[in-house]
Design a binder for these strands. Sequence first.
DNA 1: AAGGATGTTGCCTG
DNA 2: TCAGGCAACATCCT
Length: 248
Amino acid sequence: MPEGPSIVILRELIEDLHLEGSKLVDVVGTTELDKERMVNQKVIEFKTWGKHFLICFEDFALRIHLMMFGSYRINERKESKPKIGLIFKTAELNFYTCDLKYIEGNLDDTYDWTADIMSEAYNINHTVKSLKEHNNSFVCDVLLDQDVFAGSGNIIKNEVLYRIKVQPLTKIGDLSTAKLKSLTTATQQYAFDFLKWKKENTLKKHWEVYGKKTCPRHHTIIKKNLGKNKRVSFYCPECQKLIELHKK
DNA sequence: AAGGATGTTGCCTG
DNA sequence: TCAGGCAACATCCT
């Protein structure tokens, strides 16, 4: 389910219901969280930060993270009980298998919006700067680091690396500033392509390496668990060579 | 139909 | 001591 663009789709679907300003009539679900706290509270806004979906109230927010297996239903219910169900007078939002948490106070104190690849506040120079604090990290790890690229996930990671022709085990310190800039812009660009394709239901069709056997240039793709997190990487050893070519 | 996967945290161990 | 490994959470598709 998740990766930033999918969470943006969720926010847009919910924004279409125009629930901002309305109060929660009831809150149900199997969560251990204090559900009463939200009853009769007015929702100010729905926001996203990376893979986080945020329901903002006067002085706190509910953070919903769909993790790997999360799902939701809008004005519908699944067979199973929701982890949390938010009942409004005119609508209900049900979330399943998700991680829930209250964020206290101003969200700006918790979230750096300039790191969110889907945000209008996303800032290329700021991201290049934070990349340079990870000179010794592999690019495949950094592309999953939510403090650097909030909202990027394993699909985005693999597709971006193919687009910019960088091998997953390249160290950030071995990339020129210009290449770091391409990495940063390509991640944002791919995220918005992902969003568009996901809406059209054509996302899979556009994958160039993720889940593929051969790349668009017909080379055999390598599938391997790489980096400190050992997440699966798909890459083309021909198109993405591990060389110092990018060093200036 | 078993196995793997768009994710993250926190505990255990050496 | 702390980094790395790995289980846990729980679902759906192939």
